[in-house]
Amino acid sequence: MILITEFMDEAWVDWLRARAEVTYEPDLPDRPDDLAALAPQASALIVRNRTQVKGALLQAGFTCVGRLGVGLDNIDMDGCAARGIEVYPAIGANTLSVAEYVVTTGAVLLRGAYMMRPEMEAGDWPRGPAGQGREIAGKVLGLLGYGEIARKTGALGRALGMEVVAADPYARDFDGARQAEAAEVMAEADLLSLHVPLTDETRNLIDADALARMKPGAILVNAARGGVVDEGAVCDALRAGHLGGAALDTFAVEPLGADHPFAGVPNLILTPHIGGVTAEANTRVSEMTARRVAAHLGLE
């Protein structure tokens, strides 16, 4: 049985159903007892980022995990390796979706006028403040991390006339970007985008000190991992007017719940971890994952 614990493109769920028994329950992360009961019946799991493939779940007996996305911090990779469990992330399938998210939300925050709907609905006509928005052309796009998604983000930025500067101690090359140290990228960027995994090294990489080193009025976009950013410090920088805007797609705790610092913070876009999720990307991710899991199980 293939157990799918989070949302997946229905056509590819049906494709798997034509080849194997499939249990598709996309709300299982909210029902841990049911997940624990179903997992021992599964030969494969297909998950997104909310299912925690760790701890006792690794004892269930499945032989592979298909990851509908690329982040792996919800999967105990060492534990999987020790048990011979193969993990198949959908590398490359949502690259364009994330890159578009970064550049388009950055452009919205630079322009500013799109955030003025409340004033207009109240009957005001804030044409003066709205006319102070900034063009994206000629601005510096700073990338912390320079993997595949960051490279595509840089390409989109260059197409709009941006200069691209990047830092990554593990990058093979910096084709398309000027290489710099992370502190230099943060200091130069008009739009700073994060493209790093969540590790002990990157946790709270963007804290109060890092934010203070950024240009006044700079824009921050995080579509990487939530724990990379000190969320309270970002809110403080926005309230103080030092940051010109921020878009956060990933969070230290997901869903946010009631205990979060974001209420009433200006120039802030919040999205529910969908930077890599569009209709097109979901189809690509689902196809790649379905085919790799099927191949692992000998179903193709």
Rank of each mutant, 00 (worst) to 15 (best):
I2P: 10
L3N: 04
I4R: 04
I4L: 09
M8S: 07
D9W: 12
D9M: 14
D14H: 08
D14V: 12
L16R: 01
R19F: 12
R19Q: 14
P26S: 06
D34G: 10
D34M: 11
L35W: 00
L35H: 00
S43H: 11
L45S: 06
R50Q: 14
R50W: 12
T51V: 04
Q52V: 13
V53I: 08
K54P: 07
L57K: 07
F62R: 01
F62G: 00
T63C: 10
G66K: 05
R67K: 03
R67I: 02
L68S: 13
G69Y: 11
V70W: 12
G71D: 03
I75Y: 03
A82I: 05
P89N: 09
A90P: 06
I91E: 14
A93F: 05
E100G: 10
T104W: 15
T104A: 15
T105M: 14
V108H: 14
L110R: 09
R111P: 09
G112N: 10
M115P: 03
P118R: 01
P118T: 00
G123N: 03
D124Y: 08
W125I: 11
R127F: 13
G128T: 14
P129K: 12
Q132E: 14
G133W: 10
E135T: 13
V140N: 15
G142C: 12
L143N: 04
G145S: 04
Y146N: 14
G147V: 08
E148I: 13
A150Q: 14
L156R: 09
G157H: 01
G157N: 01
R158A: 12
G161P: 08
V164E: 09
V164I: 13
V165G: 13
A167V: 10
D168P: 08
D168G: 12
R178A: 15
Q179I: 05
E184S: 04
M186T: 05
E188L: 15
A189F: 11
S193Q: 07
V196N: 10
L198F: 03
L198P: 06
E201F: 09
T202K: 10
L205R: 02
A210Q: 05
A212Q: 11
A212T: 12
L220E: 04
V221S: 09
V228E: 13
A233D: 01
C235G: 13
L238K: 02
G241S: 04
G241M: 07
H242T: 04
L243I: 10
A246F: 01
A247D: 00
D249A: 15
F251Q: 12
V253A: 15
E254W: 04
A258P: 14
H260P: 00
P261K: 01
F262G: 07
P266Y: 01
N267S: 02
L268N: 00
I269Q: 05
L270F: 00
T271E: 02
G275Y: 02
T278L: 06
E280V: 07
A281N: 02
T283M: 12
R292M: 08
A294G: 00
L297Q: 04
